[in-house]
C-alpha cells in the first residue's frame, strides 16, 4: 500500500495553508472606489460638488468684480439674457449695484464652509456620544438617550434663531449652532452599530491583548463605522446648507454685507415679481449643492446596503 509518509512539520503546514488562499483578489478598498465611480448618482453628485469647491476656492481669480464693491449708478441691472442686461455684468447687479455673479461665487465659500463645518461638528458630537452610549451601555446609554430625546423634542430652527440672536451672528456662531443641533442622526446609527460590534470577538481579543476602552473604541470600533458615518455626513451637509440659508433668510444667520446665498434671497425678496432672477439664481445654487450632497449620500447608502445584502 503506497502510503506517503510526508513529514508534517510546521513548514509543511505552511505549504498547506498557502495552498488554500481562495483568490488573490485586489485589496477591497480599491474595489469600492471603482464601484463608486460606476454609480451615476455618485458621479454626478461628486462632479457638482467638486465644481462648486473649485469655484469657491478660486473665487478671487474667477470673480469679475469685488463682491463688496458698490456701484449705485448700476444698481439692479438684469442678467445679460434679459432685456436691458449688460454683458459686463453677466448675472446683473443687486440693489446696491454689486456684481451678482461675484457675490454668488463668494457665497459658495460661505455655504460650503457652513455645510461641511456644521456637518463636521455634528459628526464629532453625534459619533462620540453614539459610540460611548453603544459601547458602555447602562447609565451612559440612558443619559445619552435622554439627551437625544430632548434634542428631538426641540424645535430646531426656532432654537437656532434664538441662539444666534442671543450670541450674536457670525459665521463661526452659525456653524456651531447648526452643528450643535444636527447630531441625532449620527448618534442613532453609530450607537446601534457599536452595540453590535462591541460583542464581537475581535473586541474581546483586543481587550485580551491589553487595550483600554479608548483604544478599543478608536482603533477597533470606529474604523468599522466609517462607511455609515460618511453616508450620514454627506446627507447632513445638505441639511446644514439649507439651515444656513433659512437662518440667513430670516435675518439671524450671515449678516450683510457678507455674501451668502440665503441672505441674497432675503435681499431679493422685495422685488420677487419684478426681478425674479435675484431669487432664482441663488436658489439654483443652493439647490445644486444640496442635490449633490444628497446624490452622493444616497449613492453611498445604496452601495452599502448592496454590500451588506450580499
Amino acid at each position: 500500500m503506497a502510503m506517503q509518509d510526508t513529514d508534517l512539520t510546521v513548514k509543511a503546514a505552511a505549504a498547506e495553508a498557502s495552498a488554500d488562499t481562495p483568490l488573490d483578489a485586489p485589496v477591497r478598498r480599491l474595489d469600492s472606489w471603482r464601484e463608486m465611480l460606476r454609480h451615476p448618482g455618485i458621479v454626478i453628485g461628486l462632479a457638482i460638488l467638486l465644481t462648486l469647491f473649485a469655484l469657491a476656492i478660486f473665487a478671487p481669480l474667477i470673480a469679475p468684480y469685488d463682491p463688496f464693491d458698490q456701484q449705485l449708478s448700476r444698481r439692479l441691472l438684469p442678467p445679460f439674457w434679459v432685456e436691458g442686461g449688460n454683458p459686463a455684468y453677466l448675472f446683473g447687479t443687486d440693489h446696491l449695484g454689486r456684481d451678482y455673479l461675484s457675490r454668488l461665487l463668494y457665497g459658495a465659500r460661505i455655504s460650503l464652509l457652513i455645510g461641511f463645518g456644521a456637518a463636521g461638528i455634528g459628526c464629532l458630537l453625534g459619533v462620540t456620544l453614539g459610540v460611548c452610549a453603544g459601547y458602555f451601555g447602562g447609565v451612559v446609554d440612558r443619559v445619552v438617550s435622554f439627551l437625544l430625546t430632548c434634542q428631538l423634542a426641540l424645535p430646531g430652527l426656532l432654537l437656532a434663531m434664538a441662539l444666534v440672536f442671543l450670541i450674536g451672528p457670525s459665521v463661526t456662531v452659525v456653524i456651531c449652532v447648526i452643528g450643535l443641533l444636527h447630531w441625532s442622526y449620527y448618534l442613532v446609527v453609530t450607537r446601534a452599530a457599536t452595540q453590535k460590534i462591541r460583542d464581537l470577538e475581535y473586541v474581546a481579543a483586543a481587550r485580551a491583548i491589553g487595550s483600554n476602552e479608548r483604544q478599543i473604541m478608536i482603533s477597533e470600533i470606529l474604523p468599522n463605522l466609517l462607511s455609515e458615518i460618511i453616508v450620514i455626513f454627506s446627507l447632513e451637509v445638505g441639511v446644514a446648507v439649507l439651515a444656513e440659508a433659512a437662518l440667513s433668510f430670516l435675518g439671524v444667520g450671515i449678516q450683510p454685507p457678507t455674501p451668502s446665498w440665503g441672505l441674497m434671497i432675503a435681499e431679493g425678496k422685495t422685488s420677487v415679481f419684478l426681478r425674479p432672477w435675484l431669487i432664482i439664481l441663488p436658489g439654483i445654487f443652493i439647490f445644486l449643492l444640496v442635490l449633490a450632497a444628497n446624490l452622493v449620500g444616497d449613492g453611498l447608502r445604496d452601495m452599502m446596503s448592496k454590500k451588506s445584502g450580499r
Binding site: A14, A17, T21, A25
Partner: peptide
C-alpha cells in the same frame, strides 16, 4: 505567520479575502 503556517504575503490582505481556516 510562518509558525502558524501562513505565507507572509497575506500580511497585506484583509480578513474577507481569507478562508475560514486561514
Amino acid at each position: 505567520m510562518e509558525l502558524v503556517g501562513l505565507p507572509r504575503r497575506l500580511l497585506n490582505n484583509y480578513p474577507p479575502q481569507l478562508s475560514g481556516g486561514q
